[in-house]
Amino acid sequence: MNSDLTEEEMRRALFGAAQPEEQVPTPLIKEPVEEVVLAKQVLAPATKKKVAKAFTPRLRVTLRVGNEFEGKMIELIHEADTLSSLLAEQEAVKAAKKKYKYVELVSVKSM
């Protein structure tokens, strides 16, 4: 083999004879770019609509609370926004335990 091949001969051997394609390159025409300016929209201050208050189920929990064992007890009323009497009772007892040591449930009624 002849190892003294020129670059052009190697290209012809690998890629075949180069056939010049007669293409006339179309000149690139740059279209005028419109200048885009982003403007903030001016919005009127949003008026808050008053939503009609939907019916919320409420339960009234009555507790007897105190800080002395078998001492003076006062009645405490707690209103819970739930239909579950168990949740209402737990919520009321939790709130009462923050201030009083002894808590006794009297009743749970719907309002």
Rank of each mutant, 00 (worst) to 15 (best):
E35T: 10
A17Y: 05
P32W: 03
Y102A: 11
V108Y: 02
E7M: 10
K49C: 07
L63K: 03
T62K: 03
M111W: 02
Q19H: 12
E104F: 15
L76H: 11
A46I: 09
K109N: 13
L86G: 04
V37Y: 05
V36F: 10
T62V: 11
Y100M: 08
K99V: 15
E21A: 15
L76Q: 12
N67G: 09
V106L: 14
L83V: 08
T47H: 05
L59K: 09
T26R: 14
F55V: 13
A44N: 11
E79L: 13
Q23T: 08
A46N: 02
N67W: 11
V51T: 13
K50D: 09
Y102P: 05
V51S: 14
P27R: 06
S84H: 03
K53N: 00
S84Q: 02
Q41I: 15
L59D: 01
S3Y: 08
E34I: 08
F15H: 07
K109R: 13
V42G: 02
Q41S: 15
T82N: 02
K101H: 13
A96C: 12
L5P: 00
E35I: 12
A44M: 10
Q90T: 07
G66A: 03
E9H: 02
L38A: 09
P27N: 07
K101R: 15
K109Q: 15
Q90R: 14
E91A: 12
F69R: 09
K72S: 10
V36E: 13
A52C: 03
K48M: 08
K94M: 12
K49I: 14
D4N: 07
P32F: 08
P25V: 08
F15G: 04
K53Y: 00
E70P: 00
Q90Y: 05
T26F: 11
N67Y: 10
V61F: 04
F15P: 00
L86F: 10
E104M: 12
I29T: 09
K109I: 15
P57M: 04
G71L: 07
Q41P: 11
K99A: 13
T62H: 01
T6A: 03
T56P: 01
V93G: 00
A88E: 03
N67S: 12
S107R: 05
K97A: 14
L86V: 15
T56H: 07
Y102V: 10
A18V: 06
